[in-house]
Amino acid sequence: MLRKLTLETISLLFILLFVYTAVSKFLDYENFRVVIGQSPLITRFAPILAIAVPVAEIIIALLLVIPRYRRAGLYASFAMMLLFTTYIIVLVTLSERVPCSCGGVISRMTWKEHLYFNICFVLLALLGMWLHTKDKQLVHT
């Protein structure tokens, strides 16, 4: 029961996070598209990423909502958060002036806060994946 509840909470947290950031990116799309280009890592891919990132976030949120695809959703969330985390680490070491375009209140975080926040979510996704596998095993036995 507790396992189920934890899993639900983790999924809900990810859904909230991804929907919130994706929507705030779309609402402020014009700005997002410009600011994302300021990052030296992704200048060349900015026009594609400006659409791909929020769309991917929505898709992951949908995967998490549908029970059949939850496992895929959790894996995708883990991958996404890991991607963001490595990106932050590389960006901070690479460039003297770092812009941020994460969306909504999340943009207000400092780089340290960002890093801790992301690591928390990476761990949450790991926990979710583990719980989900356990769940499946129980059903099968």
């Binding site: 030296p40 890592l41 992704i42 200048t43 060349r44 891919f45 894996y75 883990f78 991958a79 890991l82 991607l83 490595t86 990106y87 590389v90 690479l94 460039s95 003297e96």
Partner: peptide, 19 residues
């Protein structure tokens, strides 16, 4: 997943203009 993510960021890094 982990390897894929790291590789992706490294590819971005390789393509980036570094001051």
């Amino acid at each position: 997943c982990v390897v894929g993510c790291l590789a992706l960021v490294l590819i971005l890094y390789a393509f980036a203009d570094k001051p």
